[in-house]
């Protein structure tokens, strides 16, 4: 199971299931051993959802993977928020 975890696998899964416009996944584990990840997800599915619901959506999408992941940071934005952030 743990062997199946990679930045690419997570990115593709999130992109597909959350219909995300943008997914950035970073392996933040000390020696890139795929135990800690940081993700940025831009998806229209987040619209109208408070932060907790957005994170829950991501967590349920990666329910299996999260059993093997030690630390998981996430930033969840709507396309509108993402555009705003880039304008700064």
């Amino acid at each position: 199971m743990a062997a199946g975890l990679s930045v690419d696998v997570l990115r593709e899964k999130l992109k597909q299931e959350l219909e995300a416009e943008l997914v950035e996944v970073e392996d933040t584990s000390a020696n890139h051993c795929a135990t800690s990840f940081k993700v940025l997800i831009v998806s229209p599915k987040f619209e109208g959802k408070p932060l907790l619901q957005r994170h829950r959506l991501v967590n349920s999408c990666l329910a299996e993977e999260l059993k093997e992941i030690h630390a998981f940071e996430q930033k969840t934005l709507t396309p509108e928020q993402w555009a705003k952030e880039n304008r700064k």
């Binding site: 932060l51 907790l52 994170h55 940071e73 996430q74 930033k75």
Partner: peptide
């Protein structure tokens, strides 16, 4: 429940 570290930080 309000969330974990990410949510509290935001």
């Amino acid at each position: 429940f309000v969330g974990g570290c990410d949510i509290l930080l935001q």
